[in-house]
Design a protein around this nucleic acid. Structure first.
Lengths: 99, 99
DNA sequence: ATATTTGTTCGTAATTTAACGAACAACAAT
DNA sequence: ATTGTTGTTCGTTAAATTACGAACAAATAT
């Protein structure tokens, strides 16, 4: 798969962010974080009707996509938006959608 | 407690569009269509280093997500952006990213 | 009538995603 | 030292995704 020749890095980056946002739970989390920038994983577990292990997986994906980062506040973990990458995603989608 | 009770329709819709855009090939196609609104499937086959059957699958997904629609211009098929849904997606991401 | 062009569908295979409960690790509180 | 809280990791399962070539269908061109 030599997509690299035709598809630009920008398109690949945008697709990567889109993929991370392509699930209702992850969209919910990012929607929340875009408004308050931080939240506790425990709060999400209470709100969302999914197993904590499932939530953990979704948070991991958002982390790997670079959209969030976790800060340890024992015994809790505070999840915050990754401002730098969030700004990048913002810019990418802004351009993509001609906003 | 179902997902439907916590996660809004807006979030689900946005996630659905995001998912459709979450692949480099589909991002490439939509990026093109956002600029010229229509294109021939055959042109894409030439440009992209993937089998035509694979491309067909990706186009089908974009169609099912409501982002594009095909018009028969025998023997070719002209793919066009679905303006109504594209506008919706634009709006959804605009709100989501606070643009 | 036959061949060509165009794109979808079929059959298949490998990989990824999504979900759960159980087990585990880290740390606080008792 | 033991208990409780919090969240990750493990093991498993089912379903979806991605990809390909071959076969097919529809329409045009020869």
């Amino acid at each position: 798969m030599k997509i690299s020749s035709v598809i630009t890095d920008t398109q690949k980056k945008t697709a990567r962010y889109a993929k991370a946002l392509g699930h209702p739970v992850r969209m919910y989390v990012m929607d929340l974080l875009s408004k308050q920038s931080c939240c506790y994983s425990g709060d999400l577990t209470e709100e969302l009707p999914i197993a904590k292990s499932t939530l953990s997986q979704h948070l991991k994906e958002l982390k790997e996509a670079g959209l969030i980062q976790g800060e340890i506040e024992s015994p809790k973990i505070k999840y915050c938006i990754n401002k730098e990458n969030w700004a990048e995603a913002q810019q990418l989608f802004k351009s993509f959608f001609n906003l």
